[in-house]
Design a protein around this nucleic acid. Structure first.
Length: 416
RNA sequence: CGGGGUGUUGUGUAGCGGUAGCACGCAUGCUUUGGGAGCAUGUAGCCCGAGUUCGAAUCUCGGCACCCCGACCA
């Protein structure tokens, strides 16, 4: 993609009304624009990041046998009434010109469960796993921290349907492993935290928390093992000995919840009469689980964890492009040729071909936008027929031929 | 929903009762080119509504919006 043909506008100044790092960097880099508190537009560059994150999620969801679908955000009142959720505080309500009332989806058990109820008949139809990636709406009393907590946000929600609790339990941990892979690929170190089960279960649910000071949750975790609990349910506090490994001390941190997994049980299948016939011909309630990831929130969390003074440092699989090619004075022809070369070999490159931007401006933009690899063509590099390639998180550049550069980039994407 | 803060061109800001200024951007021209270039000319603004005053960006009252702390967070 040529810079001159893509809609990118970076800003030199910090926004006056944002304090969180994710909002500040994403605004300046031209990834997002604030429309209102907790409501952001994703500009082309930001949408690319979101798409890259979603691609990783889709790959891992498909790998565990989940099927993608798309449910409506506009959900008639009767669906909410069926489960008693019409009056939950976070539900945005609206009505059409004929007086029909709707709630905007903040989660989708109400819509999906009836769909399954019409199609699941036998134990042979189970288990099922269905997911979607969609905009959710929640009337949050206080949106904050840029993309971390919005009134409108992107969510991947997965729902699973099982013949019994044992099968739900099996799949629950399959999803947990898939989530670990997703966050690892996205460069987000997560701590799996025990948390409250809400109304659905007395057992713990599990949250995937990124430990960082801007997080909204308070997490107690063991420094030596994987024990971690949300403050809501914690029976430990800072300084205690770890109840699990007996060795470590409990520490405290804020966390951003980028994912969660719930055992729903039969609450929603009861409401929708979602039943199947078991092998003896007897009707049984389907047992459900639900599993969420917030791609837009994850995007914010990635920036919180990965930036320096100059800009963002996207992990490879979340970056809007695979490499950022910069043409400096005297290197224009070489850069054109390199862009052709990379594009022909299937690379997704951002090529800064601006003729009216100074070298300093282009290099500063490259740092701000934060793509993992920067490739520079200049009068110097044109002389030796090589390109200067530098990783965003490194100070050192190398001079490589276009073919060697391509190998370097390709290799970096295969390392997990 | 309580508390604190902030609203001035596209962006960031100064002005705090008397002609609204600066930087960046943008436009035009010339010069520049490895870390957000130089000169010249131009462009564009006081969140909304009442009130006080000869006169309000500035003071008062009432809204609205955004940020931060707390409450809340299926």
């Amino acid at each position: 993609m040529r810079f001159t043909q893509f809609f990118i506008r970076t800003q030199k100044e910090w926004p006056r009304d944002e304090e969180s790092a994710n909002a500040r960097f994403l605004h300046r880099g031209g990834f997002i624009e604030k429309i209102g508190a907790g409501v952001y537009a994703f500009l082309p560059l930001g949408l690319r990041v979101l798409d890259r994150i979603n691609r990783v999620i889709r790959e891992e969801m498909n790998a565990i046998g989940a099927s993608e679908l798309l449910l409506p955000a506009l959900i008639p009142k009767k669906y909410w009434e069926a489960t008693g959720r019409w009056n939950v505080p976070v539900l945005y309500k609206s009505a059409d010109s004929s007086g029909q009332e709707y709630g905007l989806g903040f989660t989708h058990e109400e819509v999906l469960t009836p769909i399954l109820a019409r199609r699941i008949q036998s134990f042979r139809d189970l288990p099922q796993a269905l997911y979607q990636i969609q905009t959710k709406f929640r009337d949050e009393p206080r949106a904050r921290f840029g993309l971390i907590r919005g009134k409108e946000f992107v969510m991947k929600d997965l729902y699973s349907f099982h013949a019994d609790i044992k099968d739900l339990e099996r799949f629950y941990w399959v999803v947990s492993d898939a989530y670990k892979k997703i966050f690892s690929r996205l460069g987000l170190p997560v701590t799996v935290v025990e948390a409250a089960g809400g109304d659905f279960t007395k057992e713990f649910t599990h949250e995937f928390q990124v430990l960082t000071p801007v997080g909204e949750d308070t997490i107690f975790y063991c420094a030596k093992c994987d024990f971690a609990q949300n403050k809501e349910v914690a029976k430990v506090s800072s300084g205690d000995g770890c109840p699990k490994c007996q060795k470590g001390k409990i520490e405290e941190s804020n966390g951003i919840e980028v994912g969660n997994i719930f055992r729903l049980g039969t609450k929603f299948s009861e409401a929708a009469n979602l039943v199947y016939k078991d092998s003896s011909g007897k009707e049984q309630l389907v047992v459900m689980g639900s599993y969420g990831i917030g791609p837009s929130r994850a995007m914010g969390a990635i920036v919180e964890l990965n930036h320096d003074d100059a800009g963002i440092r996207w992990p490879k699989e979340a970056a809007p492009f695979e490499a950022h090619l910069v043409a400096l004075p005297g290197g224009e022809e070489q850069a054109d040729a390199a862009y052709e070369h990379f594009t022909e070999h299937g690379f997704d490159i951002l090529y800064d071909d601006r003729a009216d931007a100074t070298p300093g401006e282009k290099l500063a933009d490259a740092d701000l936008i934060g793509i993992g690899w920067r490739i520079v063509a200049s009068a110097k590099t044109a002389l030796c027929g090589r390109l200067e390639i530098k990783a965003r998180d490194s100070r050192d550049a190398e001079l490589l031929t276009p073919a060697e550069s391509a190998d370097r980039i390709r290799t970096s994407f295969h390392v997990r």
